[in-house]
Design a protein around this nucleic acid. Structure first.
Lengths: 219, 219
DNA sequence: CGGGCGGTTGAGGTCAATCAATCAGAGTGG
DNA sequence: CCACTCTGATTGATTGACCTCAACCGCCCG
């Protein structure tokens, strides 16, 4: 079993929000910006729920840990995404910055005061649900290669859509997201590269060479 | 690859809602009751989204199908549960009755007319999200035995909490829910029985003999 | 230059999938 | 009432995808 660091300063990877405003633009007004260092905890499992977050720059992982150390990454969030909406008043999973990250932090009180919150909160929850359910299919019924392909396509779609992709997360994070081991993720990257579908340029950069073929691998 | 039936009359298994009212009791007023036969489709993937459903009796599965026939059951719903809330206006998954089932069907227009809808809709979405994310951990990081144990404990908790359990779903449904094959599910049932943790009485009935031990298997 | 960390690669093992046979129960029809 | 069939479940034998264990590599940093 390996350990998971939870704080160390590192250079940033994704400085700006390149995506079309994902509605709810005035979150920037309701909340305040706050910076987090690489691997810094944003909230922990068990923390009291208060408000939500929008990624301004950087990236975030949501993590659940089992007692014996097994780890599942529930989702990654990139600039423009909103996260932290939960049922009940206790966090069911932790949030951690993948790289140096800036968040718009919106307290529950500020949300409650804003009349436009209601429907948007529902939409936000439903978007999370949609992603979560799509991921259920990936975890339950796809092969390692399909999982990795889907991960890459999804991340590319969500970060500007360009074919060259900066990965803010480690192989371990990807493995824990896809329900694989770090070795299998690594091997799958190599295999996809051998097939000419991607080009791996250093372990944090990937170029999607044949995006259509990759997309075809996952339904 | 096997086929999945979509209609045939069969006796009912769970005639009444035994759970504490899951808030939103007045859905019974907003909507109308409608009966569905075993394996009957409630809505299909691609259908237009209109309103939501509450299970009055019976049970429901939510299903996504991949082109090549692989199937993932996203969730099961039992009496008292609300389902059918989705982002966008197109169904991303199908809903089917597991057994003869009665639903309270609430049209979107009726919902929109009711002022209390807002927060409840959000809570409903968040409850689904919570279940979905818990299931991600199960699919990504648990063994077959742990998956089955968790499935049984969860179902028992949601249907009155008694130790003897009527399964409204087939082995295939369970397999597609847990990301396993029907054979593995069957073997795991046998194995749990051999360990004295459960007693299998016909393929649609299980008794949880050592519930604490079962619960301990899944975190 | 040495050490540490994250990633890659290789060899071998294991758990669940696959392939296949048998079984049990519910209908069906003679 | 008893064959006969059909469907779903169980069990067995074998395979294979992914995991585990281990070595190695490349890079950064002191």
């Amino acid at each position: 079993m390996q350990m998971y660091a939870t704080s160390r300063a590192q250079p940033d990877l994704q400085p700006i929000d390149r995506r079309p405003a994902q509605d709810w633009g005035e979150l920037n007004v309701l909340g305040v910006a706050r910076a987090f260092g690489r691997d810094q905890e944003i909230y922990a499992e068990g923390d009291k729920v208060d408000g939500l977050f929008k990624v301004a720059s950087g990236a975030v992982r949501i993590v659940r840990l089992l007692r014996d150390g097994r780890r599942q990454v529930l989702d990654f969030y990139v600039p423009g995404d909103i996260f932290g909406v939960e049922l009940g008043d206790v966090r069911g999973a932790a949030a951690e910055a993948l790289v140096d990250t800036t968040l718009i932090v919106v307290r529950g009180s500020a949300l409650a005061a804003d009349p436009a919150t209601g429907g948007r909160l529902t939409r936000c929850a439903l978007r999370c649900l949609q992603r979560s359910q799509a991921h259920l299919v990936t975890l339950g019924r796809r092969t390692a290669a399909e999982k990795v392909a889907r991960f890459l396509i999804d991340l590319a779609d969500r970060t500007g859509g360009a074919d060259d992709l900066a990965l803010p997360m480690s192989r371990q994070d990807i493995a824990d997201f896809l329900g694989l081991t770090i070795e299998t993720v690594s091997r799958t990257f190599s295999q996809l590269q051998a097939q000419g579908l991607i080009a791996v340029a250093g372990c944090r950069a990937v170029v999607l060479r044949r995006r259509a073929a990759l997309a075809a691998m996952c339904e």
